[in-house]
Amino acid sequence: MTSAVEFINVSRHFGPVRAVDGVDLTIPEGAFFAMLGPSGSGKTTCLRLISGFEAPTGGAIRIFGQDVSAVPPNRRNVNTVFQDYALFPHMSVRENVAYGLQMRGVGRRLREARADELLEMVKLAGYGDRKPGALSGGQRQRVALARALINEPRVLLLDEPLGALDLKLREAMQDELKALQARLKITFVFVTHDQGEALSMADTIAVFSEGKIAQIGTPSDIYDRPQTRFVADFVGSSNVLSPDQARAVGGPARWCSLRPEALRLVAAGGKIAGQVQALRYLGAGTRVVVGTPGGEMTALLPAGGAVPAPGTPVALDWDANALHVMEGEA
């Protein structure tokens, strides 16, 4: 399988700020690739390095094997769905979608017919004559998507594509994007700070922290087998155990992580004793914060079971194989 995008020791420094710092990355063709991280972690800069809006201060970027260091954005066969959609307010929806073809010199009739096809694909048939200002957020998102796809890019970049949508719409769009990607077989690269979105949509996730990639792998790699404390905490708020704590509960003397849903509350026995400190009702379950001699630990109890009141002394137990050793921590 060829690689769609390749970063070789890529850096992007803004003066003293190392937005991207020595990143090596390979995005295989046809992947649905997520760049996940908190704001300021360098994920958006990486996306802009692919589209060409930023130039690396070090290293090389290859798109389908070709070095793009000296290629401006308009000559990269890569298109972007912008976070604010960046639709042209003075053009109709159809003109917006047809813009990419217009810039290539395709005649009006042909490009508008193609634009209508794409509008139909994103379920906006009949909206061509409207102005973007007359559309809802979700509709604008679809227009932006259609516009970015009209040039049949080899890589589609999506910058926080669902960030501005409400929950219901976000979930619907997640499914649609996934289906669209499966159908078009274009490499999708999307940036998000929402770990749930990354886990549910991507087939590969790169977790960014302070300009570097903290971990790269499949969603279950990232979620079940975090390699660093940062990943364990950022993706799903795992309990992190120091080497001493891990040894105290019968594990190896290494940094370990424990998923909240792997913890059980038991009346007596268990691996560690504590006291319930706080509860957070989540609907599908309840998050229980338990104070233990080694610090707070969080357990996620499924809905329907008994939930102890704050102040209740409890013990925590888990299956031995739930304790995961983080290889990335010394």
Partner: peptide
């Protein structure tokens, strides 16, 4: 917004085309 100029370049427009359109 800057993103609008970037969107234009992203879709293949030269600087002159971006200015004009």
């Amino acid at each position: 917004p800057n993103s609008m100029l970037e969107a234009s370049a992203d879709l293949g427009a030269s600087r002159w085309q971006t200015f004009r359109t």
